[in-house]
Design a protein around this nucleic acid. Structure first.
Lengths: 133, 133
DNA sequence: CTGGGTGCAAAGTATTTGCATGAAC
DNA sequence: GTTCATGCAAATACTTTGCACCCAG
């Protein structure tokens, strides 16, 4: 379990029950889109508004506390920021897994053919997860 | 130059001037978002409607004739389908370049740690292009 | 106390749909 | 002639904004 309050404070975000719940949900599920988040938070906060979700998500993304992950054919999901990693997206069940892969070889082969200066690498594998195979 | 009419026919899409223009624009620019496409097509077709653009883009994506490319922090762009490739996105000028990289090494290292069956790989490098450096 | 967060309602933006007309085949 | 695309208007979906009230610090 994470201590969401401390995390929020570290990112200069006022600690409110709604925000704590957002962080808890994301920690629990790893990746969620806006609708899933809203639906789940409604159980704890029957009068929470979508505007609150959007404002908080945007604030957290601005503070680089959350990342938005854009995935082919699907809505964006959000995740707590952490070390750079890739995503495995199951086309069958929709599950998204994180995986840390070394991309230095790839970046080296890129250097061989281009002068592009890489700041960040976004890598999404779509396919079928172990469970669904 | 591509022969857009023939391409459209190959993908079972009726050949209309609007569609030909969409293909020509995408061929010329490589990657465009909906607004850019609309803005450019308005010059040739002053009464073209956004609905037409959306309907055609969706039809072409369904036929796997176009790809939608989702890029961090930006609107999606569309490109003519072709061999799998990666994208270099310049955070300074916004330019998007295609680049073909061999991802087999990467997929092999993935195999080492996961049973995920990869169907497709989406790879986007964000950074600074040669011109902007 | 003060600044900022919340929820509501409204506005703004993006995308889709239904339909009458017209063009492609 | 039949099928399907176009453009318009309306509907729906998604996201942001303004504001009054309230809570965290």
């Amino acid at each position: 379990m994470v201590n969401s309050s401390i995390l929020l404070k570290e990112y200069d975000l006022k600690v409110t029950p709604q925000r704590v719940a957002i962080v808890d949900e994301l920690y629990k599920h790893g990746h969620m889109n806006i609708d899933e988040l809203y639906k789940n938070l409604l159980e704890k906060f029957p009068s929470i508004s979508l505007a609150t979700i959007y404002k908080n998500i945007n604030a957290m993304v601005d503070k680089i506390f959350l990342n938005e992950v854009k995935i082919p054919e699907t809505k964006s999901v959000y995740e707590l920021a952490k070390e750079e990693h890739s995503h495995l997206v199951c086309q069958s069940c929709g599950k998204i897994e994180d995986i840390v892969l070394d991309t230095t070889l790839l970046q080296n082969s890129l250097k061989g053919v281009s002068n592009f200066k890489v700041e960040s690498t976004e890598l999404v594998f779509s396919g079928v997860c172990q469970n669904c195979q």
